[in-house]
Design a protein around this nucleic acid. Sequence first.
DNA 1: CAGGTAATGATATACTGTATATCATAAGTT
DNA 2: AACTTATGATATACAGTATATCATTACCTG
Lengths: 207, 207
Amino acid sequence: MGTQEDVPSTQAGGGEKAQDRRVKRTQQLLARALITLTLEKGYEAVTIREITRYADIGYATFFRHYPDKDALLGSVLDVVLNELLTLFSLPLVQSNAVEDGQRLFEYVQQHHEVIRVLLRSGQSASFVERIVATGTQSTLAKNEQLGNSVVPREIAANHIVTTAITLTQWWLEHGMPYPPQTMGKIYYELIIRPTHAYDATHYLPPI
Amino acid sequence: MGTQEDVPSTQAGGGEKAQDRRVKRTQQLLARALITLTLEKGYEAVTIREITRYADIGYATFFRHYPDKDALLGSVLDVVLNELLTLFSLPLVQSNAVEDGQRLFEYVQQHHEVIRVLLRSGQSASFVERIVATGTQSTLAKNEQLGNSVVPREIAANHIVTTAITLTQWWLEHGMPYPPQTMGKIYYELIIRPTHAYDATHYLPPI
DNA sequence: CAGGTAATGATATACTGTATATCATAAGTT
DNA sequence: AACTTATGATATACAGTATATCATTACCTG
């Protein structure tokens, strides 16, 4: 309901110089406007004019900050992507995969509006492509036991990331009907377990 | 390389009246042009003017056939979607899942250019959304043993379809490095098996 | 808090791409 | 061969993007 949602501060964590208050204000208003309008009518349908009108910002001012709509969305994405990578860089132990999943869905729940927008933002700005590229590389790098006798490592890594995204998409579009804890288990059973080397003991029923 | 690719005849299988030769010709030229140009520079970047110029068709003529670019792509999609559903409607037996997968990847291989375009066509025309909706429903309807103690049925059905799509995407974008037969096995191990009810004997190493 | 700096708003303008209308011509149908 | 219909060419309206300019306002620094 609330337009007052929890938009990660548009200012990326990277080493940025302190900003003029006006700049910060403008950029935040634009980001909020984009998110609100996208949730209403879809990313492609939103025009820059609408964004600036909704944000009550001069039209030309938009281009002093971003070359186009995709760049504005990209600045939001930068923040989210960084936070997600941090989320998964903490635990290197594979056995904590369930908790990894739970943490992921807790984060998604907290920022559900922004993430819904990013996942719906179509091809041009492609949040999905960027997170897949980053995530796959990261997954492949840190995980030794990936893949089994049938499934090649590269496919497994790609599979984990893309599938985590589609599972998240499903969850968001169905109103987050299960708690993050349950989703963490599902994430493990459906995604992580099948991508790891065969170990018969893993495959016994949980009860 | 060849522009002369195997574009499923734009005329959908549904009950259509016989067309004027000129109409058929125009629509085929437009479809071919869209596919070729999209493979070159991406769907969003292609303009209707480029399509008509490449097809050597009058600009205004485009709108006598389709209201916009998405509609043109949609007509191609109709054909592919029908063929895919036919592909999976033949075998109702679950144990043939490996063959199902193999058939899927054989079809994708045959029509790889068109399918690459459809999978890259962004949000607005969203091929993916349509095939997910159709595919999920179909999967859910015909498969009884879907889901297990941890994974709900609806999630499992969605998972199968979306994951088959991302696996196809990976395969196409990496130049189809494994034969359809191998992909069929991977499809089964990575996607189908984890979504079915627990059965310890299933989970013993294949060798 | 005064003075310089920088961001903003408003306006004008150029440009690209979409979409529709009209009419003469060519191609197809029967 | 006569009728019908699709097409090409052209003109036009329109929406949305993108840049330039200048007066005004908010901000930061000393």
